[in-house]
Write a protein that binds this DNA or RNA. Structure first.
Length: 227
DNA sequence: CACCAGGCAAGTA
DNA sequence: TACTTGCATGGT
């Protein structure tokens, strides 16, 4: 995959190099199976990962981190198990919607579901209620190993604070910026996104408080980052 | 105490 | 099409 050099491409590579040099490989996604990636991707919607971990632990203790078991769990019981991840009634419903789709369209086989071509798989994921662009792309990249870049709040915040993109850039535009300017390599997309989340958690919250301590100092040219 | 976190869908203008 | 609001727990 050959990409002609451009200022934007150089900035994206330099940002990646700076992140990797500072934080090292992140070994994402933090899950033991593809099914657990799907569950975590739904549970982490607008929620701190520490709270998702509590819910995952509860599900594991109940033996519910497998499709056949989770699919048979009553909604009240499921809601109780995922309570710590917040929005628990909504998320229990979304997990059930995914399991219902998996059961009806793919005989409950996640592998089979994930094997189809990216465009069809992405469209099918987005058609499941409760799965939007970020959740779908997280599943595509981290559960199915496809070269799809995941955009999230940290991606937008880190790049806009470094003045690489406008603050209000849309999901598709920001995703295209990465996918059209980097080699389409699942391992690269995996690590890049994980690193953005890592630096975001530590230095790039919505409050600008820790922003000044950020070790990257990436192309700010001395100016304070805008909110 | 107030504010925030790895979204999404439904409602309004 | 572009905003706004509800959903909810647990950490800082």
């Amino acid at each position: 995959m050959l990409l002609r050099a451009s200022p934007l491409r150089r900035r994206l590579f330099r940002l990646y190099d700076a992140l990797l040099a500072r934080f090292g490989p992140q070994s994402w996604w933090p899950a033991r199976s593809a099914f657990e990636v799907v569950v975590g991707a739904i549970l982490t919607q607008s929620t701190a990962w520490t709270n998702v971990e509590r819910a995952i632990v509860a599900l594991r203790r109940a033996g519910a981190l497998r499709a056949p078991v989770l699919a048979r769990l009553p909604s009240r019981r499921l809601a109780t198990l995922v309570r710590a991840s917040g929005f628990f009634r909504v998320k229990a419903g979304r997990l059930r919607a995914f399991l219902r789709h998996l059961g009806r369209r793919h005989a409950g086989h996640l592998r089979r579901f994930l094997r189809q071509p990216v465009p069809a798989l992405r469209a099918e994921l987005l058609a499941i209620p409760g799965i939007g662009p970020e959740t779908a792309d997280s599943i595509l990249l981290y559960a199915a190993g496809r070269p799809v870049f995941v955009v999230d709040a940290y991606t937008r915040r880190v790049l806009s604070r470094h003045r690489i993109v406008p603050r209000a850039i849309g999901y598709a535009e920001l995703q295209a910026l990465f996918m059209e300017n980097l080699p389409r390599d699942p391992a690269l997309f995996n690590e890049y996104h994980a690193l953005l989340v890592r630096v975001g958690k530590e230095y790039c919250r919505t409050s600008v408080a820790r922003c000044a301590e950020c070790p990257l100092r990436f192309d700010l040219r001395g100016r304070p980052p805008r909110l």
